[in-house]
């Protein structure tokens, strides 16, 4: 299992693991997530639990987001390195459960970013206790398509966004939602000036 995805999963998991996952629905347009010095515009009608978003259930499709301190990021891969995209590709490609992997560098709202697309045999969202049991006792075969953005912040940290869904029907249907969320990333000014909630 790729450590990067595990990190993102663990970060999301730590914010919502319990016997009862408490989803909060995004009920209004322009609803935002604003914590840890950054803000994102949340998709209307989706449900959020911590750093995880889903429309139909996170074992089916999920968006995960996480601000990764530079030291933590560099322990895995140096996002500032010019060969980062190649490194990410090599790193993800080592996982035997990853296939059809592509990586490219791009610019997102003035920030340097790396986008990876691949398929992975694990469900996207952080599991609940009951779901883990189901998956453990009654595993099902299936591939999920993922899109992952690693966005460099000039302030030093990295932002990791991951979206996963089955390749058939679901991935394309909700890809726009994910890309709009990534594009909405706004980082607070270093002075700690707070934005509207």
């Amino acid at each position: 299992m790729s450590r990067l995805l595990v990190l993102v999963l663990v970060a999301a998991l730590s914010s919502c693991f319990s016997f009862e996952v408490r989803w909060e629905r995004v009920e209004t347009r322009n609803a935002v997530f604003h914590q840890d010095g950054y803000r994102l515009e949340l998709p209307l009608g989706w449900a959020r639990c911590g750093n995880c978003l889903t429309r139909d259930g996170s074992s089916l499709q999920a968006i995960l987001f996480h601000r990764m301190p530079r030291a933590e990021a560099e322990a895995e891969l140096d996002p500032g390195a010019p060969e980062f995209a190649d490194g990410l590709k090599t790193w993800l490609g080592q996982d035997e459960h990853v296939r059809n992997l592509e990586c490219e560098e791009l610019t997102l709202a003035g920030r340097h970013a790396t986008r990876a697309r691949f398929e992975w045999s694990s469900a996207p969202g952080p599991p609940s206790f009951d779901d883990s049991l189901m998956a453990f006792f009654f595993p099902i075969d299936g591939w999920y398509r993922y899109e992952l953005y690693w966005v460099d912040d000039p302030g030093g940290d990295a932002f990791v966004f991951a979206y996963g869904a089955p390749p058939l029907v679901y991935f394309e249907r909700d890809l726009d939602v994910f890309e709009r969320l990534v594009a909405s990333l706004a980082v607070d000014a270093p002075s700690g000036e707070s934005a509207a909630p």
Binding site: A47, D56, G57, S59, L60, D141, G142, P166
Partner: peptide, 25 residues
């Protein structure tokens, strides 16, 4: 489609049972 059915059905049958599927489903 059979594979998709297995994945979708797994999430769908969580509707009303908490866990990874939101209750409004």
């Amino acid at each position: 489609h059979s594979q998709l059915f297995a994945i979708v059905a797994r999430a769908a049958q969580r509707a009303g049972n908490g866990g990874t599927t939101p209750s409004f489903k």
